[in-house]
């Protein structure tokens, strides 16, 4: 059987069951039917009850997540490289980081609001927290995966520490770092939607979902969820394309 067909089987079945249940219940507040959801999705630029269009809110969420993710990467990658390379950096930062890591990003919400008020800064802070650890841990793993013989071969060319980092450690751990960034972005994406659901927010897909829920517009809630899913898949694919294009050596080298 065609594999692509196989992949579509389960989603198709779920949609069918959903539609059947929606028709049976006949209560759009509990479960809107497919047509209602599709009509929201098919006009992504239409303003929804004065809270902006699906597309505008999606862009807002994407902007927030990108900013927070960028901050996280800028902190996590250099720190990961340092911790992977120098034992002292590992000793200094390791304990604190492993104590902070189990705290869910959303547990920082009250503090973030107290420090930065509601808005871009506090949201970026929460998102950055979500993305930080996957990127840090995979950077560490990446540095560890750099072969000793690569380092020795390049140091035989007279390379100092800086050149070793630039020419061996960074490119050698790049595939792992990239994988960590992919995972980190996924988590950041979940964080932004959750953060946007907090009271006081006035834009973003998370806000749109909560707002529509308040008005009993469940078809918009579902459409918003679908949009979140679609954007998530697209971004993940983008990461994968880059991975295949630039980091194919990793799979081939083993």
């Amino acid at each position: 059987m065609n594999r692509n067909l196989l992949k579509l089987l389960l989603p198709a079945a779920i949609i069918l069951i959903w539609e059947a249940v929606a028709l049976y219940l006949n209560n759009p507040f509990v479960l809107p039917d497919l047509r209602a959801v599709l009509s929201v999705l098919s006009s992504p630029t239409t303003d929804i009850m004065g809270s902006g269009s699906l597309l505008d809110n999606g862009k807002m969420s994407l902007f927030r997540v990108t900013l927070g993710f960028f901050i996280a990467s800028c902190l996590a990658i250099p720190l990961g490289l340092a911790m992977g390379r120098w034992e002292a950096a590992r000793d200094i930062a390791g304990g604190l980081l492993s104590a902070v890591r189990p705290i869910p990003p959303l547990a920082w919400v009250p503090l973030a609001m107290a420090w930065f008020k509601i808005g871009l800064a506090s949201m970026s802070f929460i998102i950055a927290f979500g993305a930080f650890f996957p990127v840090l841990l995979s950077t560490l793993a990446g540095v560890r995966s750099v072969k000793q013989s690569w380092l020795e071969a390049v140091s035989m060319m007279g390379a100092g520490e800086l050149n070793l980092i630039r020419k061996v450690i960074l490119p050698g751990s790049a595939p792992e770092i990239w994988t960590g960034m992919r995972v980190g972005f996924g988590i950041a994406w979940m964080c932004v939607v959750a953060a946007e659901m907090l009271p006081g927010t006035s834009s973003g897909l998370g806000y749109l979902i909560m707002y529509s829920y308040g008005w009993g517009q469940t078809q918009i809630v579902v459409a918003g969820m679908v949009a979140i899913g679609i954007i998530g898949i697209l971004i993940d694919q983008l990461f994968l394309i880059v991975e295949r294009r630039w980091f194919s050596w990793r799979a081939n080298d083993r």
Binding site: E152, A153, V154, M156, G172, F247
Partner: peptide, 30 residues
């Protein structure tokens, strides 16, 4: 380690993300 000596390892130790010629010219680049 000194570039006055060249070392050939048991395992080739070429950098897999660089082409052969980039590997050979890396020392010159640095």
């Amino acid at each position: 380690p000194s570039p006055r000596m060249g070392m050939i390892f048991q395992e080739h130790a070429l950098l897999p993300w660089l082409s052969v010629i980039e590997n050979v010219s890396l020392g010159l680049e640095m």
